[in-house]
Design a protein around this nucleic acid. Structure first.
Length: 506
RNA sequence: GCGCCCUUAGCUCAGCCUGGUAGAGCAGCUGAUUCUUAAUCAGCUGGCCGUAUGUUCAAAUCCUACAGGGCGUACCA
């Protein structure tokens, strides 16, 4: 039972046919360098007179390049909408303006093709700024059709798998990702202005540290050793503090081999920054200043709508203690161990083989966090769940740590860094003891770095993806990561059938 | 990991409850059209109804399994 290979999609074969005819006209269907183009936004702006009494700038020359989104044919004339990443402009093509030869090429154009156009700006009868084409050139023939012009690409899975189609056909997606790069750029500028330097530390680490997530393992053949994709850069950045780099930041990916959800992607972007001679109060001020300045550019009044929630980012942001919040929402004092454990069992929280602090923290996550619309700094955490943090002077069981919550999500986590090597060893050993077998060994080199003296410092990590979610009002982390982690498709994936076809002919 | 939901033309979606020859819009093709804009008008093409198994005279529709995806939940100091 040999099933016939399905025929090439009709639309694709039609386009292939157009391509052949273009080649017969001695034109290159995949184009050449195109000089002198301007962003479409700029062309549109060039037409609009600044003050309204000024006359329209009829006839201003314009040259743009972009993808054809729609074609409205009228016999010997046509209107095309072409789009680049700054905007969309209408092109008017008239047979007796561009000449017989070019008009032949126009007739072979398809939606999705990329063209370059030179002409003059004018306003149509209906008031749309348009380029009256004198000249145009095909820069790339598109052999596969675009998604539907009005609804765009809706299929969520395909939007993630074929992000290029999402970017072409959904303006909102493009906008989100351009905003994301803006946020990254502004963040870098912010830290540079504060005298920080950007550094890069290993993504592949022999001992994964700085957090407790399960790591991804890989293997180096020549060295014949296992390496772990980092779960955090923390321990390396602290080594730099020891080395005398006083203000450092790193923006890069972390990898955690845990579940996937609307708030979790296995690889995610984090900025971590460390400042010598500072503490967690310094970090709070810095964070508030940074996020406020990022938000101001997008939402000048600093009032953010995120889904159903409304966040007011105007300073000052409240700072509330962990213990206080615990009491407020659980109705129990953190020190009432028996009552707390009972409550945990009621809430179906796993309590076996778990440290008390970790059980209590589960309650915190379940009962308190859903109330933290924020922005709010939760400060002063229990020591046992914060092994890298310095204790408060007046209470060794509480540490100088805060987490920033926005829209019920943990956005940032920061400490006054623990710089006592003896205390640090104790804490890490304790942590290892509490963990299941098969956990990783102690990072002795990190401890010896501390023995050489790390200045008192404040340090922090901010989850960039989640911050972008909030600032662009996206409900899923997959909407702000260009290529989110997805399952591999089963054997029967869609083939790039045209490529095969072309290859066969040659 | 568990629960609920989704998968039909290149794209956006109906049809499924109540089994009986697979529908629309966009896109595409042919023709008309020298200021249209979700252009319009006339005609046409295009489906392994996610995959596999059942039940049935008959399955897009009902059952089961699997795959991919979404949401929720769990895990993730």
């Amino acid at each position: 039972m040999d099933k016939q290979q399905p025929e090439l999609n009709k639309q694709k074969s039609d386009r292939l046919n157009n391509l052949k005819q273009i080649e017969e006209l001695k034109l290159d269907p995949f184009g050449q360098r195109f000089d002198g183009g301007q962003p479409i936004r700029e062309a549109l702006d060039a037409y609009q007179p600044k003050d309204e009494s000024a006359p329209d700038k009829e006839g201003v020359p314009a040259t743009v390049a972009g993808r054809i989104m729609t074609i409205r044919k009228h016999g010997k004339t046509a209107f095309l909408d072409i789009k680049d990443w700054t905007g969309k402009i209408q092109i008017y093509i008239k047979k007796n303006k561009v000449g017989e030869e070019l008009f032949k090429l126009y007739e072979l154009l398809d939606i999705g093709d990329i063209i370059g156009v030179t002409g003059e700006l004018f306003k149509t009868r209906t008031g749309e700024v348009t380029i009256f084409a004198k000249q145009f050139t095909l820069l790339t023939k598109a052999l596969a059709p675009l998604p539907e012009k009005w609804h765009g690409l809706q299929d969520v899975e395909m939007r993630y798998r074929k992000r290029y189609l999402d970017l072409i056909s959904n303006d909102e997606a493009m906008k989100t990702f351009l905003t994301r790069t803006k946020i990254l750029q502004r963040t870098r500028e912010f830290f540079h202005k504060k005298g920080y330097v950007e550094v890069e530390t290993p993504m592949m680490q022999p001992i994964p540290g700085g957090a407790t997530a399960r790591p991804f393992i890989t293997h180096h053949n020549t060295l014949d050793m296992d390496l772990y994709l980092r779960i955090a850069p923390e321990l390396y950045l602290k080594r730099l503090l020891v080395g005398g780099m006083e203000k450092v930041f790193e923006i890069n990916r972390n990898f955690r081999n845990e579940g996937i959800s609307t708030h979790h992607n296995p690889e995610f972007t984090m900025i971590e920054f460390y400042e010598a001679y500072a503490d967690y109060h310094t970090m709070m001020d810095l964070t508030e200043e940074l996020i406020t300045s990022l938000a101001k550019e997008l939402l000048p009044d600093l009032k953010i709508k995120y889904g159903e929630m409304e966040l007011d980012l105007n300073s000052p942001w409240p700072r509330k203690s962990y213990m206080e919040l615990f009491k407020k929402y659980s109705g129990l004092d953190w020190s009432e161990q028996e009552a707390v454990i009972k409550k945990a069992e009621e809430l179906k929280i796993e309590t076996k083989n778990k440290a008390y602090e970790s059980i209590a923290n589960d309650i915190f996550e379940k009962l308190v966090e859903p109330n933290l619309t924020g922005p709010v700094f939760v400060i002063d955490y229990p020591r046992a769940i914060s092994p890298l943090t310095k204790s408060k002077k007046d209470n060794p069981d509480i540490v100088e740590r805060f987490e920033l919550f926005m829209a019920k999500m943990e956005i940032a986590n920061a400490f006054t860094e623990l710089n006592d090597p003896l205390e640090q060893r104790k804490r890490l050993e304790q942590q290892l003891k509490n963990r299941a077998e098969g956990s990783v060994s102690l990072d002795e080199d990190f401890l010896s770095a501390l023995e050489h003296g790390m200045p008192p410092a404040g340090g922090e990590g901010i989850g960039i993806d989640r911050l972008v979610m909030i600032l662009t009002n996206n409900p899923s982390i997959r909407e702000v990561i260009l290529f989110p982690t997805l399952r591999k498709l089963p054997k029967k994936t869609e083939k790039a059938d045209l490529c095969k076809l072309k290859y066969k002919e040659k």
